[in-house]
């Protein structure tokens, strides 16, 4: 895999070989899309972010250091793009917060009410969709660490390179994310 990736990158750098780039996109599109989808929680935005990641990778390939892992460099572009996007559209309220003037009524009940889902549909709501929704409630930093660790299955060292954070900070983010998910998912 690494040898193939190296050959493709050389071809793109030297000859601007766009076919080689298409091969590279094919190799990484699922992983990049997966990260983008888990980060944004919506497939339309995920496609946008994933495409943008590859376009930026193509435009900045000169700055990629061939001694390092290509996936680390690429995933870093993706997570940065997603975190930026999340920051821009960050809502100024949290669904967790109790709504003013109501007792025990949180944002979640509002969402459910406005969507007007029939009872049985709520009950049968796909497990995966539910898990994804719970992931989306994590703050972006905890979310990216959890996604890279448990969905992409990457080691802490690589995650710390992708997120440009010390390994101990990554561990703390994972611990916090894990605790938050435990509280939300324990009643499954």
């Amino acid at each position: 895999m690494d040898a193939v990736v190296k050959r493709l990158i050389r071809a793109i750098k030297k000859e601007e070989d766009q076919d080689a780039f298409a091969e590279l996109v094919d190799l990484y599109k699922d992983k990049v899309f997966q990260i983008a989808y888990r980060m944004t929680g919506n497939s339309y935005e995920a496609q946008d972010m994933a495409q943008e990641s590859f376009l930026r990778a193509y435009a900045n390939l000169e700055s990629y250091d061939e001694k390092r892992k290509f996936s680390t460099w690429l995933f870093r572009i993706t997570t940065n793009l997603c975190i930026d996007r999340l920051r821009k559209k960050k809502p100024d309220y949290s669904l967790d917060a109790e709504l003013q003037g109501t007792e025990g009524l949180t944002g979640y009940s509002q969402v459910a009410a406005s969507e007007k889902l029939p009872e049985e549909q709520v009950v049968t709501m796909e497990m995966q969709e539910w898990v994804q929704r719970e992931i989306s409630y994590l703050p972006p930093k905890h979310r990216s660490a959890i996604i890279l660790r448990y969905i992409e299955g990457l080691p802490i060292k690589q995650i710390s390179e992708i997120l440009d954070l010390p390994a101990n900070t990554v561990k703390t983010h994972i611990h916090r994310g894990r605790e938050a998910l435990r509280k939300r998912l324990k009643d499954a």
């Binding site: 996109v25 997966q34 969905i151 998910l181 435990r182």
Partner: peptide, 21 residues
């Protein structure tokens, strides 16, 4: 904790939509 991790890990791996490349 173990259950939360397993649920996250088991959320199926999605693929890029067709025509992505």
């Amino acid at each position: 904790l173990k259950k939360a991790v397993m649920l996250v890990q088991s959320s199926s791996h999605i693929e890029a939509p067709e025509g992505f490349t």
